[in-house]
Computed example of a mutant assay.
Amino acid sequence: MKKKFHIILVLAMISMAQLSSGQAKLEFDGQLSLYGNYNPDSDLDVLLGGRYLPELNLKLPLKNSKAFDFQAAANIYGAYITHPFDSSWSDGNIKAYRAWGRYTTEQFELRVGLQKIDFGTAMLLRPLQWFDEIDPRDPLKFTNGVYAALARYYFLNNANIWIWGLYGNENPRGFELIPSQEKIPEFGGRVQYPIPRGEIAFTYHHRNADASDFSQLGLVEEIPENKFGIDGKWDVEVGLWFEAAYTQKTIDVGLLTHQTYTTLGTDYTFGLGNGLNVVVEHLVGALDEEAFEFSYITNATAAILSYPLTMYDNISIINSYSWDMQAYSFFLNYEHQFKNFTGYIMAYYNPDIQQKTIENNFENTFTGPGLRLMLVYNH
Rank of each mutant, 00 (worst) to 15 (best):
M1S: 15
M1Q: 14
K3Y: 14
F5A: 10
I7G: 08
V10A: 12
A12L: 12
M16Y: 05
M16V: 05
S21A: 12
D29P: 01
G30L: 09
Q31T: 15
L34S: 10
Y35N: 09
N39K: 07
D41V: 11
S42R: 13
D45W: 08
D45E: 13
V46N: 09
V46H: 09
L47M: 13
L48C: 07
G49P: 03
G50M: 02
Y52F: 08
L53D: 07
L56R: 06
L58S: 08
K66M: 12
F68P: 04
F70N: 04
A72Q: 12
A72M: 09
A73N: 05
I76K: 00
A79F: 05
A79D: 13
I81S: 14
P84A: 05
F85H: 09
D91A: 13
N93M: 03
Y97N: 14
W100P: 01
G101W: 01
R102K: 06
R102V: 00
Y103Q: 03
V112P: 03
L114R: 10
L125Y: 01
R126D: 08
L128C: 09
F131T: 06
I134G: 02
D135F: 14
K141W: 03
K141V: 09
A149D: 04
A151L: 03
Y153T: 03
F155Q: 10
N158G: 11
N158A: 15
N160S: 13
W162P: 01
L166E: 13
E170M: 06
E170H: 07
G174E: 10
I178R: 08
P179N: 06
S180Y: 06
P185Y: 02
P185A: 13
G188R: 03
P196F: 13
P196G: 02
H205A: 05
H206Y: 15
R207L: 11
N208D: 10
A209L: 15
A209S: 14
A211H: 02
F214Y: 14
S215Q: 12
Q216E: 15
L217W: 15
L219P: 08
V220M: 09
P224K: 03
E225T: 12
K227E: 07
K227F: 01
G232V: 00
K233C: 03
E237P: 00
G239C: 06
G239W: 12
W241Y: 15
F242L: 12
E243H: 08
A245T: 08
A245K: 05
Y246W: 14
L255P: 00
T257I: 11
Y261T: 09
Y268W: 08
G271Q: 07
L272N: 09
G273L: 02
G275M: 04
G275P: 06
L276R: 09
N277H: 14
V278R: 11
V279R: 12
V284S: 15
V284W: 15
G285L: 08
G285T: 04
G285E: 04
A286S: 02
D288K: 00
D288H: 01
E289A: 00
A291G: 05
N299M: 07
N299R: 15
S306M: 05
Y307V: 03
P308Q: 00
M311T: 13
Y312K: 14
D313Q: 06
D313S: 06
D313F: 00
I315L: 08
S316C: 01
I318E: 02
W323I: 05
D324L: 11
A327K: 10
Y334L: 09
H336S: 06
H336E: 05
F362V: 05
F366T: 14
F366H: 11
L371C: 02
L371T: 01
R372K: 08
